[in-house]
Write a protein that binds this DNA or RNA. Sequence first.
DNA 1: AAAATAGTGTCTATGAGACACTATAGT
DNA 2: ACTATAGTGTCTCATAGACACTATTTT
Lengths: 242, 242
Amino acid sequence: MSPPETEQEFLARYDPSGFEHPSVSVDVALVTVHDGALRTLLIRRTEHPFRHHYALPGGFVRMDEGLEQAAERLLRDKAGLHDVFVEQLYTFGAPNRDPRTRVISVAYFALTHIQRLRAAAAKRPDTVLARISVPWEGSADDPVTAWLEDDELPLAFDHGTMLGTVVQRLRGKLDYSAVGFELLPERFTLRQLQQVHETILHKPLNKDSFRRRMLATGQIEATGEREQDTAHRPAELYRFLT
Amino acid sequence: MSPPETEQEFLARYDPSGFEHPSVSVDVALVTVHDGALRTLLIRRTEHPFRHHYALPGGFVRMDEGLEQAAERLLRDKAGLHDVFVEQLYTFGAPNRDPRTRVISVAYFALTHIQRLRAAAAKRPDTVLARISVPWEGSADDPVTAWLEDDELPLAFDHGTMLGTVVQRLRGKLDYSAVGFELLPERFTLRQLQQVHETILHKPLNKDSFRRRMLATGQIEATGEREQDTAHRPAELYRFLT
DNA sequence: AAAATAGTGTCTATGAGACACTATAGT
DNA sequence: ACTATAGTGTCTCATAGACACTATTTT
């Protein structure tokens, strides 16, 4: 009987091509809140499949990069953005979700404020900043729809479902995490923060207790500065800590 | 200039082997709570890599099955269990997490009660039912350790991190979801349910308000039956609704 | 002055924790 | 009778909502 194989010997002998592999992609839902609606950056596809449909920025994972790293690369290459909040969302792997071949997609979501997202979308002619419409109440797992003014944009692949999952995740994390602050510029008023929360949760919130709750978290700090050019009393600007 | 290609023509021409693909596996953390500790089913590896280490039940995703479907197949084949609660956990894709080749693992977690898990482990000589020890407080993203009596079991790959992520997920979902009930048999006492919660959260809970809170959810129903063979007043047995 | 929103103080309703008490099984 | 845990009633405290009121800006 031959001596037992060492791990080095085993690895040298290992051949990963023995069976068929799926493709793995990363798609990034780049989302913000503005003017009472969730908005996301979509790319108009010029190639099959789903030609002339709209897709999240995405691409295949390279063999030598991590998943979050791939998400950040795609944000840079396809949306021209860096240093934004990124978090893994869910992995979508239905066998027929891509008509080309088996593609498993690890979806991420990224958050910024409207100014950065608008600037990013304006630089690329093939991108649009679409409004997300949420056609369900509660916590269904159904897809959302994307709109540009009054036109519905057809979404490629299962990207409507991915965006629906983002909405659910944002609603779930709003209370106990800092996602609300990621959707606003560095300095913001409490009213702006409340509008972000109200838009995500899709319900009005009590002004007084919202204010109390936010200040009680210790996560924000008054800057002493005030809003400019308001048609009424200017609110104090706050800053998110850490 | 040639006429534009149709989607059918494009798909017929599409060749997925144009670039290197990673492998995709599914690993399932099969977890229960018993006797004041989280427990999980681990498989002792007899092959490289990580020979003689302990691993979650796992395997490669087949080209024609969905991800959750793969998780259920692995639970059946490697643990002999079917019809258990299964939910996607997180996707782990560090380029070097598997020494053989690039393997992206979609991790799931599954929940049952101790009796089913003990029976499943007893049937397979290569499995153990390990106790999980959580060496951090709060919500760190660090790995946990696995123990059999007083012996620490070395964990394969990043499976200690996966189990740590399960602990965090359970802690997060306990309050607003039904995961607590999935860890108990069909009929259970409120004391048992409280012990499950206390074990997951790793802190004592107030008996009175726990009882009130659970009954107020409307998710459980008194059966009229009572515990048997107790050395004290027997508690009423409750049942989880839907 | 009028309009509009910012920001504060106080009352009330609700839910959790604390605690005392009663109930019911085995030994 | 004793012990141990089940289960109930009540008080208190913390927090959210409701509401009234004052403050500060532009027009």
